[in-house]
Design a protein around this nucleic acid. Structure first.
Lengths: 329, 329
DNA sequence: CCGGGCAATCGAAGCGCTTCGACAGGAGCG
DNA sequence: CGCTCCTGTCGAAGCGCTTCGATTGCCCGG
């Protein structure tokens, strides 16, 4: 292994000078800098991560806690994780993967051993047991999702409330008078995960503001067909549907068709779902900007690590893309 | 921060004794061991990861390179990753997440800086550019997937060949004389990713051995409907189908139905897909044991880290679960 | 009763890096 | 022309841990 003293000898300077060239923390003359960098290249020098972490008390690693629970959409999680890694790399940091089920212990372990400098937690619950730990850990953290009491924490999320509202408004604009939101499985609501609740409240608020009837119905993937059938039977005047539950999209559409409703002629449909399936199915949709969420979470974290102040709450606005399931009248 | 010398003082021993108690690398008398462990608990001592890595030249972190490419099924990847993290934790290791697009540089970086002790690479291509690097990195590695030349490497994967064969045999056993495999998108085959090719060859080999006609057809998700329609039109005697392409399952089934074929009466169907969708759709299926793949990859890696010899190739056998799409005659 | 051997513990030397204070030499000023 | 002030560089002191002898008792066999 080639170490900093080897580089120093090769370049004819002291180890500290090499360190300063590499870190830029003190000014170094141009000729010296060049000589050192050449030696680094020639010798293929790589600073030892552990030694660096020990001396600087910075590991340049952040932890990312990913959820495992049912009812969350895995590709979105993965996309956020990848974006987080990519963004972290642009800040010269790496990402350590933690699972939800390590819980509080996991956080205390990676922070306590100085394995990581900071933490991102995905899929925060309204009354998450990890919140007090995060507050007292003495390391910066960013939550993806909003707990009931976000005081003292930095949170970021897609603005589900605005997304729910945008759907209701879009349907109201098209002249619909009775609309429904088909949401996540009941378990997700019961768990008190914020996003399902917030989509619902945005949807209901906007519907009320527009004087439109707005129903909300949770839905299990297995029960999609029957849910659709019942909904149409019990509410014959229903003409607009918002689906916020990716796995059920196709079964629901099939059931609507089977019930004799044509889309968009008899029924307008909007999906809160990734672009790929929405586009394939020709559905007007709002996508969760998973890349942005993951990337910006890291950006916020880096700002905190640099000692900057960051906003406590960041909400990423929805963008509705009109496709053939909600044509302009 | 409480350090090992604090624990030593509190317990009335030397730092090295504390270290030996914690590592178990030398025998320590029971009373001393107890005193030290008590002090550790009372003071809340956590060894500093960087210091430990520096002194022992072991970081207790492994790298996991996850794919980003199209045509791979994200939930399966995620499941393997989670299993890898969980298993690594049981061996007192953590997992650093790397993305495919860091490529060779990423591997050299994390290995060269001693950030990680070992590496798992997912989604290996037949002629992967990372293979020579992995061979010469001087750190243990395990590949998930098989390259064209696995010499000198440790590889593990689901036995797609056997899975393809098992599907063909199951259909042959049911009396079908002409069967088809609807596979991954053409892009996946062109890329030379092993798994698509291996499923195909197992399927064809078994079909030939049974004297059954076995067609293979790649399939894009967007083109699922037309693919199904054409297939049935061009091969009127086709009565058995294997689908190895999760996103197309539902559209394909819909298309079969639309073409007037009832399942299982007119058409037997097997899916190579996770249990969840297969069960929901009532399909006989073979699931990819993603948990086992991820977990065993880590187990192999840990064995290598401990200096043990491990088999160069590990293939996890398929398990076919019969559901209502291929009833016993 | 003595010496060999073993179990238990200690001390000290690093592991490779960062960082702080010191210092040399040149520029700028009065 | 002497003094101050920078700029660029060096040396040394750690960062907190592991690990390799060395050391101290103690038990046991001869």
């Amino acid at each position: 292994m080639v170490k900093i003293s080897d580089v120093a000898r090769h370049a004819g300077v002291s180890p500290s000078t090499v360190s300063y060239v590499l870190s830029g923390k003190r000014s170094i003359s141009e000729p010296t800098r060049r000589r050192v960098l050449d030696s680094v290249r020639v010798l293929g020098y790589r600073p030892h991560a552990g030694a660096r972490a020990l001396a600087s008390s910075r590991s340049n690693v952040i932890a990312l806690v990913v959820p495992l629970r049912s009812g969350i959409h895995v590709p979105v999680v993965m996309q956020m994780a990848i974006a987080a890694v990519t963004t972290a790399r642009t800040h010269d940091h790496d990402v350590l993967l933690l699972t939800q089920d390590e819980g509080v212990d996991g956080l205390e372990r990676v922070a306590g051993t100085a394995l990581v400098d900071a933490i991102i937690v995905m899929d925060v619950e309204l009354h998450d047991v990890r919140l007090p730990v995060l507050r007292s850990l003495g390391r910066p953290s960013v939550l993806i999702g909003f707990p009931a009491d976000p005081a003292g924490l930095t949170c970021i999320d897609f603005d589900f409330e605005a997304a729910g509202a945008a759907c209701a408004e879009h349907l109201a604009d098209l002249g619909h008078r009775e609309i429904a939101l088909i949401g996540a499985p009941p378990a997700v609501y019961e768990r008190g995960t914020g996003f399902a609740e917030r989509t619902k409240s945005g949807f209901q608020r906007a519907a009320a503001e527009r004087g439109v009837r707005g129903l909300v119905r949770p839905c299990d993937p297995q029960a999609a067909r029957s849910a659709a059938t019942e909904l149409l039977r019990d509410h014959p005047d229903l003409t607009g549907i918002v689906i916020h539950n990716e796995p059920t999209m196709e079964p629901l559409l099939a059931a609507f068709r089977a019930a004799g409703r044509r889309i968009p002629d008899d029924l307008s449909v909007i999906a809160i779902a990734p672009d790929e399936p929405a586009e394939r199915l020709g559905l007007t949709s709002i996508a969760i900007p998973a890349d942005d969420v993951g990337g910006q979470a890291v950006t916020l974290l880096m700002a905190k690590l640099d000692g900057h102040d960051v906003p406590g709450a960041t909400l990423l606005p929805p963008r509705l893309i009109v496709r053939s399931s909600t044509p302009e009248t």
